[in-house]
Design a protein around this nucleic acid. Sequence first.
DNA 1: GTAGATCGTACGCGTACGTAGATTATTTGC
DNA 2: GCAAATAATCTACGTACGCGTACGATCTAC
Lengths: 138, 138
Amino acid sequence: MERPDLGKLTAALVREVIRREAPILERAGLEMWDYVILVALSEGDAATQRDLAAASGRDKTRLIGNLDRLEATGLVARAPDPADRRNKVVSLTPTGRRVLARCRKDIRAMEDDLLAGITPADREAFVRVLILLGDRAD
Amino acid sequence: MERPDLGKLTAALVREVIRREAPILERAGLEMWDYVILVALSEGDAATQRDLAAASGRDKTRLIGNLDRLEATGLVARAPDPADRRNKVVSLTPTGRRVLARCRKDIRAMEDDLLAGITPADREAFVRVLILLGDRAD
DNA sequence: GTAGATCGTACGCGTACGTAGATTATTTGC
DNA sequence: GCAAATAATCTACGTACGCGTACGATCTAC
């Protein structure tokens, strides 16, 4: 089977997805990293910013600026952990949850459009393999 | 179907592929961009460096440094076009072709390892969809 | 032939990145 | 109590990126 490198193919797809996400995120006033962080938070509050950095893939020093903005616009809350006041527990506010839900919906619609014309069987196989390979960090 | 964003999934896969390509490229003394450029050249000589920049996705001013290195190590050749001496025709040398072939083989082996355990049908669907979506720049 | 466009090249700008201290507040081990 | 460790933060550094500009060599149009 002659085909381009996986790296080339996947990088092209990432570029295309980013290109299509850009207008959605801009409309919501979010940067790419903001969205990634909100998504990470939607899977549960972060006990520490260190944890959030690890969960989102964002460098811990760079994360601070994003949280400053997200906190200032009321999308997330930073609360000192009563049990260990060095830690700050980061959580989504109701507003943050609402903004994220809307973004997610728009992005899902964009993805459906991107996947238009792909048979359901191929879509399922594609996503299945994607999930498998992304976790294959061994 | 509940699943992570396509962006998250594909970005994770790209990171994993890059991580696995790194030792192969380092062994060959190539940077990531060097490899991308060699691959672009393997699909035909570039009539101009401008064309090569477009074909490889590299910024035209950044391309120069890569070509300097690749030329110095004898992997590519820059020859003034007799028909228009402003242009420089960039081509793979036999050495370049050999180094690229070896890299490609190692990378293909890495990919086979990454894809181990995926059924042939799923692999084919995966690559098929990947090729389709990457070109979907509309 | 002369004006204007094009190619390769060099350089500087602003941006984003990860890393490495240093600092302050806080907790933990002894 | 006090020393060592840890979390969040700030700052500075070096690197890579795309973009814009400028310049010399060269080609094209008129």
